[in-house]
Design a protein around this nucleic acid. Structure first.
Lengths: 206, 206
DNA sequence: TTGACGATAGACCGATCTGTCTATATTGTC
DNA sequence: GACAATATAGACAGATCGGTCTATCGTCAA
């Protein structure tokens, strides 16, 4: 469990792919960790699914904790890119609500099983774990984005509104994990009301 | 991992306490499971903390899964009683907002580490696990209560408002796990606005 | 050709896991 | 005093855990 300090990013021997094994390992880890939890999945199952050797895993990541961190890191990177791309489709003053439409489509995916970051925070009690450090950064990023959007929406108290919408955002993901996408739609409905939006025009049923 | 079908509730041999070992076991399980997660804590540590023998654990619960379920069940029972008692202190039309004050005081406790039910749902992928079955029941209970409260508050759309408040409720707990009690206060602020409450009179700072 | 490098395969280690089992102690009841 | 019930103590089994290590292979570059 001695966490990695510095680890050389190995280059693949084949010119085409940049460390294909590394990618395969994170792919397998992502799939299994998300589906079953980071503690429920052992190293060996990841190796089997990735078709990799144990030595490769430890050459690239040093220990399981760092593989977990790499998994979380990639999830965060993809989430940020996905959210930014999604909200950019509408003008700034509509982006706070748009974020909840992002959640709607996310939680509607058949393999949705909750937020990987929330799960890791719940599973790993140690706040110093590298994956949890990444989680903190994601919180800051999200709060910044929501503040930006509530300002653009001319909210009376943008900071408080951003905190409230972030909380609603977390709830949309957590509640949808247990109740299904209904809760994400409820969250958007609430976000529209909180921002004083003109109701959005009753775009969906329930 | 063969889950328990029927298990006799053993009576203690001493007249005073009703199965003191059982209580000690759940106490220890509650403490450790909540603090570190159900997969991170082994049977042996629970036995040590409870001062109980392994045979006692398996006589009372049959398997670890059923001990987890007993832990969740007690948490749910206490949560319901706590919430009901807390909201009963105000008239029905104020109870929806009052529920968020309950969350505020809960997440402000120093050992707060998130919602035990959310954690178990995240940790255990199997929806048929006895603890997850209990979680479903808790969802229904919460939704019923919120519907009752939004009706009492004369919300225009009580069902939708209840779903939104439940989502906000989940978010308050999940977000406070990562960001601290600020998010619970944000959630109450949002709940007041959603119900069109007269602001509550700026009772707290931020 | 040789050597460095990245990779696979898998034995191996010590620790820990859930669960079963036997042996023994304590206690209340007949 | 005998018995049944409940408890403790802990050996034991079989599986799995994270992690280390050695051996071998294929590819690229000098």
């Amino acid at each position: 469990m001695s966490r990695n300090l510095s680890r050389v990013d190995a280059q693949s021997t084949t010119p085409a792919a940049v460390s294909a094994v590394r990618v395969r390992l994170i792919d397998a880890a992502d799939h299994l960790f998300y589906k079953e939890g980071v503690r429920a999945v052992g190293i060996d199952r990841i190796l089997t699914e990735a078709g990799a050797a144990k030595a490769s895993l430890y050459a690239h990541f040093g220990c399981k904790d760092d593989l977990v961190a790499a998994y979380v890191e990639r999830r965060i990177t993809l989430a940020r890119a996905g959210i930014d791309a999604f909200v950019s489709q509408v003008p700034p003053e509509q982006r706070a609500v748009r974020a909840f439409e992002f959640v709607e489509q996310w939680v509607s995916q058949p393999d949705f099983r909750g937020c990987p970051v929330q799960h890791v925070v719940g599973e790993i009690a140690d706040g110093a774990h590298p994956a949890r450090v990444l989680a903190v950064g994601q919180r800051e990023w999200l709060l910044e984005r929501f503040t930006e959007w509530t300002r653009a929406a001319h909210a009376a108290d943008p900071v408080r509104a951003a905190g409230a919408l972030l909380t609603l955002f977390d709830g949309a993901v957590a509640a949808s994990e247990q109740d299904g996408p209904v809760r994400a739609r409820d969250a958007r409905w609430a976000a529209e009301r909180l921002l004083g939006a003109p109701d959005g025009g009753a775009r969906d049923g329930r």
